[in-house]
């Protein structure tokens, strides 16, 4: 029984990831994801009951910076906006967002 089949909802994943996927592409992605999951499902064969997860391999802890203003990296307004396709009076512009949060 292919338990991965029901898990993949390409249009949901596209929405979640804000990726544009045409109906043509969707079928291809679904097949691909299912094949990928088949490979990664093999990890179930390994017993990990006694180990924790490793999210970072450095072993570093407590890395901070002091609460000081660092002018060297602050961008001028011009530099901050120079790559935007749409800007107005010092602001970035996006289509109107109608709900207030």
């Amino acid at each position: 029984m292919d338990k991965t089949k029901s898990k993949i909802n390409v249009s949901h994943l596209a929405e979640l990831s804000k990726m544009t996927v045409s109906p043509n592409e969707a079928a291809g992605f679904k097949t691909g994801f299912e094949a990928t999951l088949k490979t990664v499902d093999k990890l179930e064969q390994l017993n990990t009951k006694k180990v924790g997860s490793t999210f970072q391999v450095t072993g570093l802890k407590n890395v901070y910076r002091p609460d000081k203003v660092d002018k060297s990296r602050v961008l001028s307004q011009q530099k901050a906006l120079v790559n935007a396709k749409n800007s107005h009076k010092g602001y970035f512009v996006v289509p109107a967002i109608f709900d207030e949060t």
């Binding site: 990664v40 990890l43 390994l46 990990t48 180990v51 924790g52 997860s53 490793t54 391999v57």
Partner: peptide, 14 residues
Amino acid sequence: YYNKAQKVRTLIIE
């Protein structure tokens, strides 16, 4: 998925 992978990662590291 993600968490399981990170656990196997520990096995590899050890």
